[in-house]
């Protein structure tokens, strides 16, 4: 763990991964779009609207995966005080907010023609909306303090506390009566989705995952430079008048 917490080593690792993850995400999303829009059948009940699934479901998965990443790195930051873990959490929340937003709006666009409503306050939709607010709260809290380390700590606690929402989102459709249907793809048993529709779904999901990795690495790199900037400015403010004569 400590090996990756070293920013210089992380930057080298990031530069090695970035070309691959970005190329792979472009490739997978392009293939996913081809199958999603041109080479997959309409649904026997839902007709062409089923194509909305290929952006809605992957964005929902990524919204939750991103939150798990954020909560995990927040725990690492709180317990082991790795400086990099705070930066990962800070870099992750805008990405998660974007995926959650995409999930909510695409779901709304799917719900209107099929269910007959843009929105319903059922357990699945409501818990997903809470996830969106958790992301926004995290982004706001992290910048709410003059001292960045205090902001990071408060945001990490919020991220950990909000993690209880993740199993609620996942199991809401099993625990309560909801308008939203249960999961089609689960670990146990055959997915109740035709292979011709599963293919674009999985391609898009993998493409989104690679895209998430790519953007996360870019944002963490940005945060590392930003903290470097802060450090230099601090030394300039505090050390320059005293340190210059000593150094020369």
């Amino acid at each position: 763990m400590h090996r990756f917490a070293n920013p210089a080593r992380f930057l080298r690792l990031a530069s090695a991964i970035l070309p691959w993850s970005s190329a792979l995400s472009a490739l997978l999303i392009a293939a996913g779009l081809y199958f999603a829009l041109f080479h997959s059948p309409a649904d026997y009940q839902q007709g062409e609207t089923v194509r909305i699934m290929y952006v809605h479901v992957p964005s929902a998965w990524l919204a939750m995966a991103c939150y798990s990443t954020m909560a995990l790195s927040s725990a690492v930051a709180l317990i082991w005080k790795h400086p990099l873990a705070d930066l990962v959490a800070k870099a992750a929340s805008p990405i998660g907010a974007a995926f959650t937003f995409l999930c909510l709006v695409s779901g709304s666009l799917w719900g209107r023609p099929m269910w007959g409503t843009w929105w319903a306050w059922d357990a699945r939709l409501t818990s997903m909306l809470i996830l969106f607010f958790l992301y926004l709260g995290h982004m706001a809290l992290i910048n709410a303090f003059d001292d960045p380390s205090r902001g990071a700590k408060a945001a990490a606690i919020l991220a950990l506390a909000g993690f209880v929402n993740i199993p609620i989102i996942k199991f809401s459709v099993d625990w309560w009566n909801t308008l939203h249907q249960p999961a089609s793809v689960s670990k146990f048993g055959m997915p109740s989705i035709d292979p011709a529709m599963l293919l674009p779904l999985l391609l898009m999901a993998l493409g989104f995952t690679c895209f998430f990795v790519t953007v996360l690495l870019i944002r963490v790199r940005t945060e590392i430079i930003a903290s470097k900037l802060r450090a230099i400015r601090m030394t300039q403010i505090h050390a320059v008048p005293v340190a210059v004569p000593v150094a020369e």
Binding site: P41, A42, D43, M114, G116, A183, S192, I193
Partner: peptide
């Protein structure tokens, strides 16, 4: 006063269903 449709988690093409 309001009727919403609820669908299940099955997705398949029309010909497969038939």
């Amino acid at each position: 006063s309001e009727v919403l449709a609820k669908h299940d988690e099955k997705y398949m093409p029309k010909d497969v269903a038939e």
